[in-house]
């Protein structure tokens, strides 16, 4: 591993100041499971590592019917995965975090870190976007709030400005008669980066789809909402033909690339298959 300087700020203000001063080659360390790999494999030039683990107040973790979910920046994927409350309200997120690396990785990796890494294939992103998550961002003076789906500008790139630190993420409580699902597609059952990830959250009312959000991972430079597909189902009945049309629309909205993991054509085709399957699973999950 390349040598770097190491900092352990005691407060958000100090961390923010350090990051702003040190510039782009200073990086935040929370779980470290991505950052240390990037340093070791020379994927990112890093001269300063700013460990935020000593900063108080970043370990909020609450989940209930009234407030929804709140996950602080230092909460690990494994904590979320093994929480019965999250499993009850957000099984899609539990499924996603449960497929992130291994248990060993999830004991270190944070959910917020998975978000900030801004990988188009990150597992937590589609379900969180489908559930309307928002990020709290400390900017040196105070906090601002950003909708997760507006957070990403490209692979590894976000709207964060120098010195800004994401302190946590919140998800509104699930709506009545709502169901949610996340399907990850990879070659293996574990230790995979998604070749395609599809999350669907929907609400049913009198046999019709009252609301639906479809979020796709690994098929565009950032995770995306398939809004045209959603519009085809919103207010409509869940007929097989209608669902097939939604799946078709989601395929059209995706702009995947070809790489060693899969061809663009295959990824697009899987968006169709998995969107259909995710809608079915989300329907089945409605209480």
């Amino acid at each position: 591993m390349k040598r770097f300087e190491y900092h352990e700020p005691a407060s958000l203000e100090e961390a923010s100041r350090l990051l702003a001063e040190l510039g782009a080659t200073a990086q935040v360390l929370a779980g470290g499971t991505d950052l240390l790999v990037e340093i070791r494999e020379h994927l990112r030039p890093v001269t300063h590592v700013v460990n935020i683990k000593r900063i108080p107040g970043l370990r909020d973790f609450a989940c209930d019917d009234a407030q929804g979910l709140r996950v602080g920046a230092l909460i690990t994927a494994r904590e979320v995965e093994t929480s019965p409350q999250v499993a009850r309200l957000f099984p899609n997120l539990v499924s996603a975090v449960g497929q992130l690396g291994s248990i060993q990785v999830r004991n270190r990796a944070t959910v917020v870190g998975n978000i900030c890494r801004a990988s188009p294939s990150a597992d937590t992103l589609p379900p969180l976007i489908a559930d309307g998550a928002r990020l709290s961002v400390f900017n040196g003076n105070g906090e601002r709030s950003i909708a997760l789906e507006e957070f990403f500008t490209g692979p590894g790139r976000t709207v964060l400005r120098p010195g800004e630190i994401v302190t946590g993420i919140s998800v509104p409580p699930p709506g009545a008669h709502s169901g949610r699902a996340y399907i990850k597609h990879g070659r293996r059952k574990a230790m995979e980066l998604a070749t395609v990830g599809v999350a669907v959250t929907l609400e049913r009312e009198a046999g019709h789809c009252r609301e639906i959000r479809i979020a796709l991972g690994a098929v565009a430079p950032t995770p995306i909402r398939a809004r045209e597909a959603e519009a085809l189902l919103r207010g409509e009945a869940f007929t097989p033909e209608r669902v097939a049309a939604v799946a078709e629309a989601a395929m059209t909205e995706s702009t995947p690339i070809s790489n060693v993991r899969a061809s663009a054509e295959y990824r697009r085709e899987m968006v169709g298959v998995l969107t259909r399957r995710a809608i079915t699973l989300a329907m089945e999950a409605i209480q």
């Binding site: 293996r188 059952k189 574990a190 230790m191 995979e192 980066l193 060693v260 993991r261």
Partner: peptide
């Protein structure tokens, strides 16, 4: 194990993309 046929560069020199079956597979 795949190489790029333009440059000869290796495309999956690691356990993430060289897909060995693991315990769940």
């Amino acid at each position: 194990y795949v190489i790029d046929h333009q440059t000869g560069r290796s495309l999956n020199a690691g356990f993430v993309d060289y897909k060995m079956p693991l315990s769940m597979d």
